[in-house]
């Protein structure tokens, strides 16, 4: 376990900024309970500093997880968000798409968001921007990136893709073997 280097921090923050924009400052400045980012075996964790200090007692080999896992660095140095980061993304989400109950299961099985399934969405989402997907009762379901801007999406036919799926909570079942070490 170690803090992120300058480059790594930059990569991670750029990625996060896609989804939460300037709200990223809320992640860093938490005067009541300071949090930090830590790297452990390719994975980036976002964790309270108090918990982090206790975790320093645990050896590198034995430490499996701490706090919330945001995602991992790929071998090529890119940063990939995991569905486990949804808790934070949803909290500070900038652009949101809500999907209707009849589209929930389709989305949870790993499909993209279709126009027919969109219940409502934030205004003025640009094209190719990170969005958080919610169910109509405000349960966060996943995140993705828009295929069309809000304006364009209005003109789309019902089977057209509004947003590409990047992560959904169905992965907790589908990817259990690979997602967590």
């Amino acid at each position: 376990m170690r803090p992120l280097t300058e480059d790594e921090t930059k990569t991670v923050f750029e990625k996060l900024a896609n989804y939460i924009g300037r709200n990223i400052t809320h992640l860093i400045n938490r005067p009541d309970d300071p949090h930090c980012f830590r790297l452990q075996k390719d994975r980036v964790y976002y964790v309270s500093e108090r918990v982090m200090r206790f975790a320093t007692s645990v050896g590198r080999v034995e430490l499996m997880s701490l706090g919330i896992c945001l995602g991992k660095f790929t071998k090529t140095g890119k940063f990939r968000l995991h569905i486990t980061s949804l808790e934070i993304l949803a909290q500070y989400a900038r652009y949101k798409i809500w999907i209707k109950p009849n589209g929930e299961m389709s989305y949870l099985y790993g499909n993209n968001v279709l126009k027919a399934h969109v219940g409502k969405m934030s205004d003025d989402i640009p094209e190719h921007t990170g969005i958080i997907v919610f169910a109509m009762n405000d349960i966060p379901m996943g995140f993705g990136v828009t295929a069309k801007s809000t304006a364009d999406a209005r003109r789309l036919d019902p089977t057209g893709i509004v947003a590409f799926r990047q992560g959904d909570i169905g992965e907790y079942l589908r990817e259990e073997d690979t997602l967590f070490t």
Binding site: V47, V58, L63, M64, C69, E87, I169, F180
Partner: peptide, 25 residues
């Protein structure tokens, strides 16, 4: 058991427990 820590980590994250440290001793 290292294999069993997978389901442990999955459940911890799914249920949003942020105050945990998972170790394999």
């Amino acid at each position: 058991n290292k294999a069993r820590t997978k389901s442990l980590i999955a459940n911890i994250h799914r249920l949003g427990c942020t105050n945990t440290v998972v170790c394999n001793y």
